[in-house]
């Protein structure tokens, strides 16, 4: 009774705030929590005319089908390898770049380099993949011509399974290293200049100052971002994979999310694809929690 009365009091007091936030609440309820209800499909045989609730329950049938499928091992392997290679390359490069920027003494040049390095972030993924394909075209692409100077015979790299991961990761690093360095540049800018001055007085050279002052000062930022990156590791950009892969490269390029896309949207196996998607999300959450737990144990930095 009293609880109800307090609620009524609150609503009377904050009705205008409630009204302001209402459209946002509706959005999250419909488009973010609505699809979570749709996950039920993964345990049913979804039938459009019967709807999600009316379709018959089939328990874990789709999950068993997934695990029993010949593609399961390949999907797990490809998803993990692509994520890990992505992390290994795209994580340290921005740090190295920020450290390099810090060593440039001419402020104007430094500013210019920074500006140029952010630019690719704003180029759409369609354009990035399109340009890459053009540069590497076996029919006179500029990079192909350049490689042929060293005696490399022209190849159609987009059809080579072993070229897929390097191309994916390399173009990703090209596009994001500048943008991802912003946060480290800011962290370096926040370091107390007196530390450098007294180190210089003690005779520490530039390399020593980098190792003993700059790196330890930005270490907390690095660790925090590493956890966040690891948590997001398996959420890799399938939008880009879909643009880059083809039947010839499925053996290395096909990952969980692209498999969901093909099975669900191209073959209309809604229930099975939802099950694959759910399996992928569950693995993601486990990795995020695991990364967070590890970080908490070792460094006392965590996001939760």
């Amino acid at each position: 009774m009293t609880a109800l009365r307090t609620w009524k009091k609150y609503i009377r007091r904050d009705w205008m705030l409630l009204l302001i936030i209402l459209p946002g609440v509706i959005y999250f309820a419909v488009f973010c929590y609505g699809p979570m209800y749709g996950i039920l499909m993964a345990f049913k045989d979804y039938n459009i005319s019967k709807g999600i609730w009316g379709s018959p329950w089939v328990g874990l049938k789709h999950f068993k089908e997934l695990v029993g499928s010949v593609y399961f091992g390949r999907l797990v392997k490809n998803t993990f390898l692509l994520s890990i290679e992505q992390l290994i390359w795209s994580f340290p490069v921005p740090i190295a770049f920020a450290l390099l920027l810090n060593e440039i003494r001419n402020r104007k040049f430094q500013r210019f380099v920074q500006t140029a390095a952010y630019l690719p972030h704003f180029v759409s993924v369609v354009v990035v993949v399109g340009i890459l394909k053009d540069l590497l075209s076996s029919n006179g692409g500029v990079l192909t011509q350049f490689f042929s100077l060293f005696g490399v015979t022209p190849k159609n790299y987009f059809n080579l399974p072993e070229a897929f991961r390097p191309l994916y990761v390399g173009s990703g690093v090209w596009q994001e290293f500048g943008w991802n360095s912003i946060i480290y540049v800011a962290a370096i800018a926040g370091i107390d200049q007196q530390l450098y001055e007294s180190a210089a007085l003690d005779g520490a050279g530039r390399w020593k100052r980098l190792i003993h002052i700059t790196l330890p000062s930005i270490a907390p930022t690095i660790i925090l971002l590493l956890i966040l990156n690891m948590g997001n590791m398996l959420n890799i950009g399938y939008e880009k994979v879909i643009l880059m892969y083809n039947a010839a490269t499925y053996s290395t390029a096909d990952i969980f999310s692209t498999y969901v896309y093909r099975k669900g949207l191209l073959n209309a196996q809604y229930s099975f694809a939802s099950a694959v998607g759910l399996a992928n999300s569950v693995i993601n959450v486990i990795i995020l929690l695991g990364a967070n737990f590890l970080a908490k144990k070792t460094t006392e930095i965590s996001i939760f």
Binding site: C32, Y33, G34, P35, M36, Y37, G38, I39, M41, G231, S257, V260, Y261, G264, L265, Y270, A273, S274, G277, L278, N280, S281, V285, L288
Partner: peptide, 8 residues
């Protein structure tokens, strides 16, 4: 961190 996924 959590979503219903593409198909739903």
């Amino acid at each position: 961190f959590v979503s219903g996924g593409l198909i739903p």
